[in-house]
Amino acid sequence: MTQTVMDIKDIELEFPVSRSLVDFVKKRPGRVVRALNGVSLQLHKGETLGVVGESGCGKSTLARCIVRLYEPQNGSIHFDGQDIFAADAKADRSYNRRVQMMFQDPYSSLNPRMTTGQILSEALSVHNMRPEAEIPSRVAELLDLVRLPQDAAGKLPHEFSGGQRQRIAIARALAVEPEVLIADELVSALDVSVQAQVVNLLLELQDQLNLTILFVAHDLRLVRHVSNRVAVIYLGRIVEVGDSETLFSNPSHPYSQALLSAAPSLDPDDKGDAIRLQGELPSPLNVPPGCPFHVRCRHVTELCKAKVPGLRALSGRGEVACHHAEEISKHA
């Protein structure tokens, strides 16, 4: 029943850090930021998969890998059964039509010198979505779809508010009739009231157009609201994936538990029993050996320091990457 449209397998991505003269003189080896350390994830047709995690954990890097803005050093991404980083696939621009991305910053994601109409008709004509004569009417349709007034076509991006710009970005992505949308912190730059508008619009369009959405965000309540499934990332690794409701009401991984309890609650009676993590998020320049979370975990054992836990299915829940998931979730 659930059909996998995108299969991400063990992708790893490192960014080299530029070496200083001192490093060079002292013959220190070049350092790397390990942004993704073997991320595996499946995207099912028609679902919304939320991806959450702290700043710098690799959420956006993952999103950018999926649209081929970055190429991972290891691992593969298969879309519709085809490896997107294979040589012949890279030359094929139709992948870029079928998988679209929307960016976090609405102030930099639109070309400031092109009107909305030009932005949309460019997308339409490059991919030959419509014959030349029908492009203006399709632009009007797209503006309607994201509920922008018709006169928006003649305006430049600076004439719009953040929320309106984000809707132009959605219209641009939808212009090429994609199957998968990657929303990288789509609304985090917007006011709360506008966030709701944009997110609801996105969900409505998803229903209408049967889209699959990967929703990257750090706002947990928002992710809970929009996603069917959720993946929690920690230091470039997925620590837990599962059905959204189960994961939010009953997280299994100690990191998910800490992350969710850190989210502010609207219930005034609910105070103070949040799990407080010790220490800082380790630098991705220097990922701890074993389970990357062991330096901050309350349940740490010798095993955690030695061996990296893989993702494994837990009965009645999703998949968890923790050696002690069974005991921990029993106590929780």
């Binding site: 081929r68 930099s108 994601s109 490059v126």
Partner: peptide, 17 residues
Amino acid sequence: GNDYASAGVVMGYSDRR
């Protein structure tokens, strides 16, 4: 450094464009 350049890549536009 602006996302509109990345957006161009994601949209599948040619380098020349």
